[in-house]
Amino acid sequence: MSFTRHVTVTETEHGMVLLDERSGRYWQLNGTAATVVRLLREGSTVDEVIARLSERHPASAGRVAADVHGLIRALRDAKVFK
């Protein structure tokens, strides 16, 4: 998975900022969302990302899958992630 070509990605101290250069709209991702995006861009599958985050955050393991799928869906709906 990757960003569409009109998206600029900037790493920040606490996550990541995405700028859609076509619309001027931007998104600020927290550290966990940035980790999801990084792992997917590096070639991890969605299931691998979910497993890794569930291990890292066992108290939230029940919500991880829904949150990861929700993030991906939101970025795709905004046409910044493919």
Rank of each mutant, 00 (worst) to 15 (best):
G70F: 12
L39A: 09
L19G: 00
G70H: 01
A66G: 09
V64Y: 01
H57V: 12
S23A: 13
V49Q: 03
H14F: 14
L39T: 07
V46I: 15
S44F: 15
S2H: 13
L18E: 02
E11A: 13
A65K: 15
V17D: 02
L39N: 08
H57I: 14
V36T: 06
T35G: 07
D20K: 02
P58V: 14
A51K: 04
A33Q: 06
L39K: 03
E42M: 11
T32E: 12
V37M: 00
V17L: 08
S60I: 12
A59F: 03
A66T: 13
D20I: 10
V17M: 06
M1I: 13
A74H: 06
E11D: 12
H6T: 11
A34T: 06
V7G: 02
F81R: 08
D47S: 13
R38A: 04
E13Q: 13
V68T: 05
E42H: 07
S54C: 10
E21Q: 13
V64N: 01
S23F: 05
H69T: 10
L39R: 02
V46A: 09
T45C: 06
L39Y: 05
E21V: 12
P58L: 14
A65T: 10
A78D: 09
I72N: 03
V7R: 04
H57A: 12
A59W: 02
